[in-house]
Design a protein around this nucleic acid. Structure first.
Lengths: 211, 211
DNA sequence: TCAGTATCGCAACTGGAAGTTGCGTTATCT
DNA sequence: AGATAACGCAACTTCCAGTTGCGATACTGA
């Protein structure tokens, strides 16, 4: 039984270990972006990483754990929250960033992992919830500032504005699927703003419908 | 070489054949609803249908063809287009119907088939496009009548209204995922209506922004 | 009713990928 | 330089997709 800080403890990944780990995780992301979550095989990842299959299984218990590990490294990336003083400009910038991210290799890798419906590993499920919760929290200040400036009605729920903006983009990317151009992106932004300004996205439990 | 109508031709599925086919397709839908598309195995379907695996492979070339066949039978179902004289009521009825369908066994079966990201068989891909195109076409008259009544601005694109209403529901069901209650459903409807009334969902190539 | 034929059940097979095990080899740290 | 942790390798098991050959069975048409 070794505890953290125990002088007799050997760190599990040192030197060569770290290089292998990085190579495998990078290869996993590349495979995810190329063939998607369903078609990803451990042997392909091993080949791409220049590593033997056994090495992967010694570090990660199974395929899902590997994917979760590879993805979660890039899940905590900071997304810049724009602050131009105009909610129209800020929200459009967020939407364009979302679309760019969706088409990037890492974005595609994460998406293909996280859109497995209900039938995915519990770790993936939990990771997905954390991911979106974090993302919404990161960009909520953009909406809060707009409310403070009086651009959006008081009581507007920031996460609802973000979701309303993001929903049509995800819908076209994952469900339909249709190409996403600037017109689609702008329409998503304007839809979210129109709904927010109409008071649809307010918390109704605290504020009476003062229409 | 037999041609259709050739008197020497034997119909491929008669008598016993039809019962087997129905049992297998029903079992496929049940399995889809239970475990989803990714985890569906031909042997499970065979067991549930009380049929041998070989029988399935003799009638359908592979797993995907079986799923497509099972699903496509239920894809052409008519969805009633409400006509109460009020777009608010009509659209809310459409949204509630969508949510009910999503939670039904057949709805879950179809959804789990159609949300496989980019990595699904071309037949599934094509079936998905046809499915949504048909659905949008079926309910477009609801929007068109609202435009004719003056409830929505002229030039409003019916399919855009439907997509804007449906997107948040799919988003919460498939991406987040969050439970979908009446508040979420109503908010999706009001968002679509607010955007339509603000002129966001009009065809901009034909009508100048008469704001 | 009865023969003919299509369909089905069954068992045994190939092939690919997940995941495991034992052992020899290499790189890293002290 | 030597001990040791990490890696490479090969050989397995298991599961499922998909195939094949043959014997059994149920439907059809006369």
């Amino acid at each position: 039984m070794t505890c953290p800080g125990d002088p007799t403890e050997r760190r599990p990944t040192i030197g060569r270990g770290k290089k292998v780990r990085d190579a495998v995780l990078a290869a996993t992301l590349a495979e995810l972006a190329d063939v998607g979550y369903a078609a990803l095989t451990v042997e392909s990842v091993a080949g791409r990483a220049g590593v033997h299959k056994t090495t992967i299984y010694r570090r990660w218990p199974d395929r899902d754990a590997l994917v979760v590990d590879a993805v979660s490294e890039h899940v905590r990336t900071e997304v810049p929250a724009p602050d131009t003083g105009s909610i129209d400009v800020d929200l459009r910038e967020l939407a364009r960033g979302l679309v760019r991210w969706m088409h990037s290799p890492i974005g595609k890798a994460i998406l293909s992992t996280m859109v497995c419906g209900e039938a995915c590993a519990p770790e993936v499920e939990q990771g997905r919830r954390d991911f979106y919760r974090l993302r919404f929290a990161q960009v909520a200040p953009v909406i809060q500032r707009a409310i403070a400036r009086g651009e959006l009605p008081p009581g507007t729920i920031p996460s609802e504005v973000i979701k309303t903006m993001a929903a049509p983009i995800f819908f076209r990317m994952l469900v339909l699927p249709e190409p996403i151009d600037d017109a689609v992106t702008d329409r998503a932004v304007e839809t979210a703003l129109a709904a927010a300004r109409a008071g649809v996205l307010r918390d109704r439990s605290c504020c009476p419908p003062g229409e």
